[in-house]
Design a protein around this nucleic acid. Structure first.
Lengths: 294, 294
DNA sequence: TTTTCATATTAAGCAAATCTGGATTTAAGA
DNA sequence: TCTTAAATCCAGATTTGCTTAATATGAAAA
């Protein structure tokens, strides 16, 4: 039994299919299948019921998941603790004002528990300002969405890759996204961040003329408006993950469904490289099924 | 990180040297050394201080040992629990009346905690009777010392391989075993068990004429007599493991030091094969540095 | 009912990892 | 200083783990 097998097991539970789990752990689906079979052989039980698609965890599989989580926690915490003596001081971190910002506190709390000697100084700003500050050394790293141009001395690594959803009030009957976009009142996300551009670009690309009735600059407010029947809009998955499934109608936005990415930009050579890598892992973990490890 | 590396790490802590740990985990010392190096690389710290012989665990090594024990406990308990649904009924177990019998309760308690549905019925008897009862099916397995003749339908697997020590009162100054055996009053272990034969055989082989002043049939009583200055004797390691180092003088008995083995005898084909294997593992574990896995 | 799609598994091959065996190095004891 | 026992290094053999391609399978759509 080894930690890579356990990570794959956890990834399947998180992402739902062997194929998506394989992506998350950077292996092929075949390798993940073999890992699970090796685990099943060692444990002497079936972890998945394979007569359905995707395979479902058996009760023994759930029990094995609990064990796996605990073992990986022990392993990761011991690694952190063993290395943690060298991780101290203050991490200067920037972030865009994003809906993903909701995930940041959970990540920072977890980092704090692993590295009691590490402080995090968080500053919110525009991504162009953040990138300049990382380049100049004022910040160690920053959380920004995917950018067309990253200076050569910096690198950007996604930790979140999430789909966009067209959301409509719960009582909406039509299920064709294009029809809805053309027919119903549209609440446009107006902001100077890449997400807004991504949404506008896809709507244009599909040649749809929306019936704009509002422009709002925060994703949370947009979700609230849609819930109250004001119209439809487009939001990233993270904005919905605490909503009940039946609170809104959700349809894939874009053909194929548009995905947006948020990542960490850092200098390619940095004394903070190790702790930033840890932060990336924790962020990816906190992101659940749409988290992406390096 | 995998469980085999962790078992090797634990084995080193238990047995004191890489070489003895290698024996315990059925690998070569070279393989164990490589495993520890791989672990050190993954954890990013040195687990052993190698400027002394044998290498000493570093503080980080001790921390890694704690993690390893916990991970292996999780792993083993989950395995037991996952399989435990099928392990029930009563295990009919026999044992010789041996000093190793002290270890048995600890092993049985641990088995009970892993397999709440399993009962153990323990019967003490002579090894010849026990072997016959295992062959006939009256017993599932029995704990007996190494025997010259095991019937073909049975197999015997050692879980304990321990050295014999010549023990003398604490104030004994002489340190040559042969001199002591010839000169001091000798308390002979008189019993119809293989251990007594082993001791007698080695004394004869060395051409030593002992000055017998007593024949006693229990090892515990022998240890008590030696402590009170009545004479010297020969006992297995297990008889001493709860005594303070300075309570007695201990010298290796035999050239090379004689080792005795205790093992489990079972039928080669048995529906109880799996649980007996578990029992063997637990017994080997409880035996500490002289425990032998299959 | 048939076809299509997406996913899981199987089989084969290759690279990496792990183990063994022998040689060398090192610490401790005589 | 020499000897002994143990750990490490090195090279080769064996095993393991991963990838790729082909096949099998369940679910959904036509």
């Amino acid at each position: 039994m080894d930690t890579r097998q356990l990570r794959s097991l956890i990834a399947i539970a998180t992402h739902g299919t062997f194929a998506r789990a394989a992506e998350a752990v950077h292996l092929t689906p075949s390798a993940v299948s073999q890992q699970i079979q090796a685990l099943e052989h060692e444990l002497g039980v079936l972890l998945f019921e394979r007569s359905s698609r995707p395979p479902k965890l058996t009760p023994q599989g759930l029990q094995a998941i609990d064990m796996a989580r605990e073992i990986l926690r022990l392993s990761d915490d011991t690694k952190s603790s063993l290395r943690g003596d060298r991780i101290s001081g203050t991490l200067m971190l920037g972030s865009v004002r994003s809906s993903a910002l909701d995930l940041l506190p959970a990540a920072i709390v977890q980092m704090r528990s692993r590295y009691p000697n590490l402080k995090t100084n968080l500053r919110i700003s525009l991504s162009s300002t953040l990138i300049a500050d990382v380049a100049s050394g004022h910040l160690d790293a920053a959380i920004v969405a995917e950018h067309v141009s990253i200076p050569p001395a910096l690198r950007w690594s996604p930790f979140l890759r999430e789909p966009l959803w067209l959301i409509a009030p719960a009582d909406t009957k039509v299920t064709d996204p294009k029809t809805l976009l053309a027919a119903l009142p549209f609440i446009r996300f107006r902001s100077s961040v890449p997400l807004a551009n991504l949404i506008d670009t896809e709507i244009s690309r599909q040649g749809i003329t929306t019936n704009d009735i509002a422009e709002i600059d925060t994703i949370g407010s947009i979700v609230t408006c849609v819930r109250h029947g004001m119209g439809i809009s487009v939001v990233p998955h993270v904005a919905l993950h605490e909503l009940k499934e039946e609170a809104l109608v959700r349809l894939p936005f874009g053909e194929p469904q548009v995905v947006r990415q948020i990542g960490i930009v850092e200098r390619t050579v940095s004394p903070r490289g190790e702790i930033i890598e840890r932060l990336h892992e924790v962020l990816a973990q906190v992101c659940g099924e749409h988290g992406v490890l390096r």
